[in-house]
Design a protein around this nucleic acid. Structure first.
Lengths: 190, 190
DNA sequence: AGCGTGATGACACTTGGTGTCGTCAGTGCT
DNA sequence: AGCACTGACGACACCAAGTGTCATCACGCT
């Protein structure tokens, strides 16, 4: 038998989300979280760089999903084709089973400025990763950055709809719609 | 004669920037800043919501410059025309005389993750303000958001060039170039 | 049995940030 | 002149995030 209960990190995440939902992010101390998880404050910061990160785990995985899909896109694919593939591959993380969890998480983030700030940082990193992946497949620079930005914007819009109350659509569908809308809008810009 | 030396806020900004440049942002405490400025820690937080904000004053002014220019654009102007006007009006803040100050400030921001995070928040607010201003002049939603995003991207690229070492170009010129590049890239996306 | 390893606890410490109250120059009103 | 009011600041106590450091002890390996 183990010296401690297993799944420390998972218990921390669970406890944190419950408390955040129940009483708000900033009215919850790290000590409260670790008490509920049966751990100490010091251990919390061994698993998460700071208090906000407990809500942003798995972001790296999402980024890898995006960049892998862009790399794997066929040679003839346009930049927006590659971005489309990236968004569709993200559907693996936004399945129907995770929807309620993601909704709760998002309601916490939306209610706090510090968390929205962190969310923007993660999104910016995602966008930068897409741009890099596009450049690596030979897309020239102004276009690579723009395509990544369009993809990022489509992702945000699709995500907003996906987590909105009473939405039942699949993420991949919403992503395709958002991208098509933006593609049409891009044509009218020039 | 006044009870205290005047220009408290200005002295705080000055002291903070000097210390940040000299020894780094995170190796500088608020107490050090206020000591140098001849004030107390409490007073610092009366002028700035948090330690980072001391580097982001005047951001609201920039946002107002942008939105005012978009509002003032002629009725027949396309979304990108309005955005172009916004970027050019920002040249008022990025004059040759402020260049060295902005360069120092930016080197501090680039060296610290927390500050980059705050910078992204400010940029996101700027983008959102542009999108709102565009919507208020009747631009439909996918286009308004996209045009704002393109303007934001152009702003970032122009700014990066403007603060890069040994750059002598005027900001307005760089902004026009960046926007023209992105406009061309947008045409190839669809 | 002995040994290293890795995750955790314990605990003191620094620093960002806030609440609260006192102080006192300037301002305006009577 | 006398008065109350306001606004900017200092003083001080306090809370919570985050870090450095050392001790502990189950587990696996030899």
């Amino acid at each position: 038998m183990a010296r401690w209960e297993p799944n420390a990190q998972e218990r921390l995440t669970q406890a944190a989300l419950e408390l955040f939902v129940g009483q708000g992010y900033d009215r919850t101390t790290v000590a409260e979280i670790t008490d509920r998880a049966g751990l100490t404050k010091r251990t919390f910061f061994r698993h998460y760089a700071d208090k906000r990160e407990v809500l942003f785990l798995g972001q790296d995985q999402l980024t890898r999903l995006f960049t892998d899909a862009i790399k794997a896109a066929p040679t003839g694919a346009t930049p927006l084709d590659a971005v489309t593939a990236a968004l569709e591959s993200a559907a693996a993380v936004f399945g129907q089973d995770r929807r309620e969890f993601v909704r709760q998480r998002q309601s916490v983030i939306d209610a706090n400025d510090d968390l929205r700030e962190r969310e923007l940082l993660k999104l910016a990193r995602l966008t930068a990763a897409m741009a890099t992946a596009l450049r690596e497949r030979g897309v020239a620079d102004p276009t690579a950055g723009l395509a990544a930005e369009v993809g990022s914007l489509a992702f945000v819009r699709a995500f907003e709809r996906w987590v909105s109350p009473s939405c039942e659509e699949k993420f991949a569908t919403l992503a395709r719609e958002a991208l098509a809308e933006l593609k049409a809008a891009a044509a009218t810009l020039a």
